[in-house]
């Protein structure tokens, strides 16, 4: 009994000290808002970039296709922290942009490469016979894409895209490298004033976990609905 009581005392002290005193929980709230902002905007940017790159890559041998290939290889072959710091400290060093915007651009460019591959794979997974059937009926390449291939590809693409956004949400946790006060950085800020690591770090981990778990749950529900129409 004594043991449980003392654990309770220690924990409630720590929680008071880390979060309640001087409204320190606001570091996490503010950080959470920034993490969500960056994730959502970067996801949108990633979809736009990914769509364009996927179309360029699929349509074949233009000089743009070579550039698209390089882009995907470079992004997938280097760590996201390195990309983020290069964009902030090298490419945009002389441009004064809010850090939220810089992070959005960096994560959007990063996500775009993965989204492009997801879209490309989703389109290529549609049976070749579908294209042949469309073309043999006299439908143009564009109409075959629009009415026959894309509607089927979407079923392959959407679940993988959901996964990509779960990954993106977690990856934004390195935003602290460019001194952006995101959720993870919120924990660091609390640690730096309290010298107490346990509660802020475990809490932040828990918040990420809840968010990704909710996304996953929504995603599998959505996937079940997609499959129901087969």
């Amino acid at each position: 009994m004594d043991l449980i009581y003392s654990i309770y005392r220690v924990l409630s002290d720590k929680i008071y000290f880390s979060f309640i005193k001087e409204n320190r929980f606001m570091y996490l709230v503010d950080g959470w808002v920034i993490s969500i902002q960056v994730t959502v905007l970067a996801a949108l940017l990633g979809i736009i970039i990914g769509l364009v790159v996927a179309i360029v890559k699929i349509s074949g041998k233009s000089p743009f296709a070579q550039v698209a290939d390089w882009y995907v290889s470079i992004i997938r072959g280097t760590p996201v922290v390195v990309q983020l710091t290069i964009i902030y400290y090298v490419i945009l060093a002389d441009v004064s942009l809010p850090r939220t915007i810089v992070a959005t651009i960096a994560f959007g460019i990063n996500s775009g490469a993965y989204v492009a591959e997801i879209i490309r794979a989703g389109i290529l997974a549609v049976d070749k016979g579908q294209t042949e059937a469309g073309r043999s009926l006299g439908l143009s390449e564009a109409k075959t894409m629009r009415y026959i291939i894309i509607p089927q590809a979407i079923k392959n693409i959407l679940p993988a895209l959901g996964n990509e956004f779960i990954i993106l949400l977690k990856e934004t946790s390195v935003s602290g490298y460019i001194a952006l006060d995101d959720l993870t950085k919120g924990a660091t800020l609390i640690r730096s004033v309290t010298y107490e690591s346990f509660t802020p770090l475990i809490t932040v981990a828990y918040i990420y976990f809840i968010m990704t778990a909710m996304l996953s749950a929504g995603l599998s529900k959505f996937e079940r609905r997609l499959r129901a129409s087969d």
């Binding site: 049976d127 016979g129 579908q130 042949e132 059937a133 469309g134 073309r135 043999s136 009926l137 006299g138 439908l139 143009s140 026959i148 089927q152 087969d230």
Partner: peptide
């Protein structure tokens, strides 16, 4: 496309749009 409009094709695997 004009040519293929006038030549129909039926495939071994049907290739209906699912």
């Amino acid at each position: 496309n004009e040519l293929r409009k006038n030549i129909g094709m039926v495939f071994q695997q049907f290739n209906l749009f699912p």
